[in-house]
Simulated scan of single mutants.
Amino acid sequence: MKSKSSTYRELNHKSDLELFELIKERNKGALETIFNRYYETLCRFGITYESDLDVVQEKVSDVFIQLWNAHERIHEIKKPKPYLYVVVKNKLMEQVSYQKLKQTLEQAQEDEYYASPCIEQEIIDQEQREIYVRKIEGILDQIPKKSRQIFEMSRLDELKYKEISEILGVSIKTVESHMAIALKTIRNMVVKNKQF
């Protein structure tokens, strides 16, 4: 039987991809190795998005918990290192977005207190927003599945083409091609239906 230290030495010599494969098989040592390999650098990276170190450390730790819990999908990840960086970035951007949303809601409540529009106008505005959302969803539904995924990663998740190509394991040209398809579909739908 191997000693614990020799097992960890063996794991340390494995590539990130090999460790991800072992995590898929529920190997806790592999998760611990990936954690030790990237935790500090991911925290350093995270500080560029969030100045509160406690929040950064919590979000980075969440990424590793998420990795362990999503072990069935690990085979989809072709480039582990960029994947970890992008997930950390997204988690921290969610945090920033949440804080902005909270401030916006607080400001909106304050504004509403001082200048509350009539209830009829609120209902009309809400209906207009719902119509607008349905139109956008209808257009997005026309985009081919892979192109829509890449479009959403680019426009909603604000990932760069290079990051998308690394996460999905495709070339940048493929990402560009799918984006062109998505944008052309949107343009055609808007013109065809005079949506907006």
Rank of each mutant, 00 (worst) to 15 (best):
Y114N: 07
K79Q: 14
T185P: 09
S61P: 10
S61I: 03
S171E: 05
G46T: 02
Y83K: 00
E127M: 11
M1A: 15
S116I: 00
E137Q: 14
M179A: 03
V190C: 04
L22K: 11
Q195F: 14
D111A: 12
L159W: 09
E94V: 09
Y39W: 03
K145Y: 06
E110G: 10
Q107C: 04
M179E: 03
D54L: 04
Y38P: 00
S97D: 12
L53H: 03
S51V: 03
L19A: 05
K146T: 13
V96C: 02
L19P: 07
W68I: 09
P82Q: 10
T174N: 10
H13V: 03
I65R: 13
L168W: 05
M1T: 15
L31Y: 05
I164Q: 01
E127R: 14
S6E: 13
Q149I: 05
L84K: 02
G29V: 04
S15Q: 00
E25L: 15
S177W: 11
K89D: 02
I139L: 06
H13I: 03
E176T: 14
Q95F: 06
I186Q: 12
Q103D: 07
K14A: 04
I123G: 00
E112A: 08
Y83M: 06
P82S: 11
S171V: 02
N36F: 08
M189D: 11
G138P: 00
I181A: 09
C43S: 09
N193Y: 15
R44M: 06
N36V: 00
A180G: 09
Q121L: 12
K162W: 02
Y8C: 07
A30I: 00
E25H: 08
T41I: 14
E72T: 06
T48K: 13
R148K: 13
N188A: 10
V96P: 00
T104Q: 14
R148L: 11
E21P: 00
I65K: 15
E112W: 13
H13S: 15
E120M: 01
T174D: 01
T33F: 02
Y8L: 15
F35M: 06
E110M: 11
Q109I: 13
E127K: 15
V56E: 04
P80G: 05
F20W: 05
Y132K: 12
A70P: 00
Y132H: 10
E130W: 04
F45D: 03
V133S: 09
E176D: 07
K14D: 01
